[in-house]
């Protein structure tokens, strides 16, 4: 018996092999948990890894209060105007909610071994907190600050000008939150909001491709051969998402 049997049929389901528990290949010395590929390119139907499309529905990470605050905040970071919808109506809060409930929110795949030591700015983020934990703590500290400063009101009930003042204070660090670095929390919130506004709509933000329409990005077109040399001429087709366009699909919206 050879230790690794290379006569594995390439048409066996790849998922069997490539999942977290790889294929058991029986050998003389026991089970081998690795994929041996030989003889042909492996391929099997149904083994592609398409993205998971965000569906409407209840909040998956945020509490109702947290969600209201986030929706108010993303609508000030990207306000609605005559150029198009703001952060709230384009789904930025939904985007952040689903991201925090998923692998990103849990720092999946990152190096999370101790010791955790503060370092130089050139050495990158060194704290153990996941994005999900940073939002939970940041929103709690923000709610406490706003409540104490604005006569018991939550952030979402403040006038837009006051909301801007609070956000500006977080950005500059002039507002100090309890146990939370306000500027770092603001940077994270702004980064995720803009990700939501410009990422493919499959992730819950950029609804109706509002972010792409704002700048004129055609999205997932993937073929511009006929327009490369149309210099100084606006690309003629509207944007398209990985899911297509709302006027192409029935019953999805």
């Amino acid at each position: 018996m050879t230790g690794v049997d290379k006569r594995v049929s390439p048409w066996l389901s790849r998922r069997l092999f490539l999942g977290s528990t790889a294929a058991l290949i029986v050998s003389g010395t026991g089970a081998v948990r690795a994929l041996s590929i030989g003889g042909a390119l492996p391929w099997a139907p149904g083994t592609a890894t398409p993205p998971t499309v965000v569906r409407p529905g209840p909040w998956m990470f945020f509490t109702a209060d947290e969600a209201s605050a986030i929706e108010a905040a993303v609508d000030r970071l990207i306000p609605p105007d005559d150029r198009g919808p703001g952060g709230k109506d384009s789904g930025c809060a939904v985007f952040i909610d689903r991201q925090l409930a998923g692998p990103y929110g849990h720092s999946e795949g990152l190096y999370t071994r101790p010791p955790f030591m503060p370092g130089a700015a050139t050495q990158g983020y060194q704290m153990p907190d996941t994005p999900a934990a940073r939002y939970r703590a940041g929103l709690k500290a923000l709610a406490d600050y706003v409540k104490a400063t604005f006569g018991g009101k939550p952030f979402q009930d403040l006038a837009p000008a006051d909301q801007d003042k609070v956000l500006g204070g977080l950005e500059s660090g002039s507002i100090e939150l309890k146990d939370v670095k306000s500027a770092a929390f603001f940077t994270l919130l702004l980064q995720n909001t803009q990700e939501g506004y410009f990422a493919d709509p499959i992730y819950g933000g950029n609804r109706d491709m509002a972010g792409w329409k704002l700048v004129g990005f055609p999205g997932a077109r993937y073929d511009y051969r006929d327009w490369v040399e149309h210099h100084n001429e606006k690309y003629p087709l509207p944007p398209v998402s990985i899911m297509g366009r709302s006027d192409w699909t029935v019953g999805e919206h």
Binding site: P50, E195, D200, Y203, Y222
Partner: peptide, 9 residues
């Protein structure tokens, strides 16, 4: 594949 390779996020 071109069905979803163009996913910036």
């Amino acid at each position: 594949p071109p069905a979803y390779a163009q996913d910036e996020l």
